[in-house]
Design a protein around this nucleic acid. Structure first.
Lengths: 200, 200
DNA sequence: CACGTATGTAAGTGAACAGTCACTTCCTTA
DNA sequence: TAAGGAAGTGACTGTTCACTTACATACGTG
């Protein structure tokens, strides 16, 4: 066993966990069917054949990516709810909203959910979405102690964000687009507006 | 000119309009990238090469399908709002909700929207979504005279339906799934519940 | 009826892609 | 240090697919 950094090669497990974030980025751009495994391999800096060896099939890779996506979302919601623990339900929901909005500023986690929904006719993908949504919904419910209707609304507006981001409705300066984007402060990553409190 | 039905061949325009509903069905199942043109051709009963000739490229065909999809949605919403014309905003919105839910009982129009969102990195597809959402949003606003917030909510819950249908959450009998599906009476096509008024 | 145009097909083309395989290089440990 | 196993590559394979093209058949019209 060599724990020092002099190794030239990673273990297969290290590779897998290292590949996942890159695969997430690539799949988020073009989705499951339109993304060749070779693109993932290039992004990860390894050969295409080895990516398949690491994950078995492209589908298994994609499912692993979807799981990782929801994992990160759950973590963010969890962290966002931490500093208002025990607050009013709506207060907790708002904190989680802010955390989600902040998290998806780079679009990848959001786009991947859209692509996963589009590929949900594949049973394994549909199951991954179910796992993820179960986790997220339960987390939101448990942390906020909000009524089911409030939780449902929370998720519904999250889905609306998907539409806004995929069609880039925030870049359209028309009444109908403003109707859909109103009150949703999202994207414009890292630009801090004066007077708005920032998570320190 | 021969206007009788003795013709063995359709005009190109007739073919195009005839192919679109079949293409809608096929694309709704597997999405843009995973659907070969040959599948559309088979469904339409013509050769694959001719489908391309009729629409130019697969992309142009898909865009035409997305436009047709929103066309049908707009028609349904329009019709649904007819018999409560001049009613209270929320009343009109509810009527449109019912019309939408009834329309998407066969899933195709809904699934196609999801697939279009997933392919929205293609500029032509993104533009088609924008056209469609502009039309739908304006229609809902104009017919209902509801506040923008209400219209936004209407669309947001429509997007929630997309998630429920793609992941088939209505078939999951767990609290988290019930939280997301509550109050949304959808699918279970054509089963009329006692005591619920039916559009005669 | 003959000629030009539009409808439609079937075979073909070249590129792209998921997965395989033989092989090399590195690492660990007995 | 030798040996076996694990990491990793690159070329290959068979298939699928969008699009093209050469050709055939039907249709309208002078």
């Amino acid at each position: 066993m060599n724990t020092s950094s002099t190794r030239l090669r990673s273990t297969a497990d290290e590779r897998r966990t290292g590949v996942l974030p890159q695969a997430l980025r690539v799949f988020a751009k073009t989705g499951y069917h339109a993304t060749p495994v070779s693109d993932v391999a290039t992004a990860a800096g390894i050969s295409q054949g080895y990516v398949i060896r690491l994950f078995g099939t492209k589908l298994e890779l994609f499912v692993a990516v979807v799981d990782a996506c929801f994992e990160r979302i759950a973590e963010a919601l969890d962290a966002g709810s931490e500093h208002v623990r025990g607050g009013e339900p709506q207060e907790v929901l708002d904190a989680m909203s802010d955390a989600y909005v902040e998290l998806i500023a780079d679009r990848d986690l959001l786009m991947l959910q859209v692509h996963a929904q589009s590929a949900a006719d594949i049973a394994e993908v549909r199951d991954a979405i179910r796992r993820g949504m179960a986790r997220v919904t339960q987390l939101v419910s448990d942390r906020s102690h909000a009524a089911p209707e409030q939780v449902q609304r929370f998720i519904a507006y999250g889905q609306l964000c998907h539409l806004i981001v995929t069609a880039e409705l925030d870049q359209i300066d028309r009444p109908w687009a403003r109707t859909l984007t109103q009150g949703i402060r999202h994207l414009e990553p890292l630009t801090t507006k004066a007077g708005e409190e920032v998570k320190s």
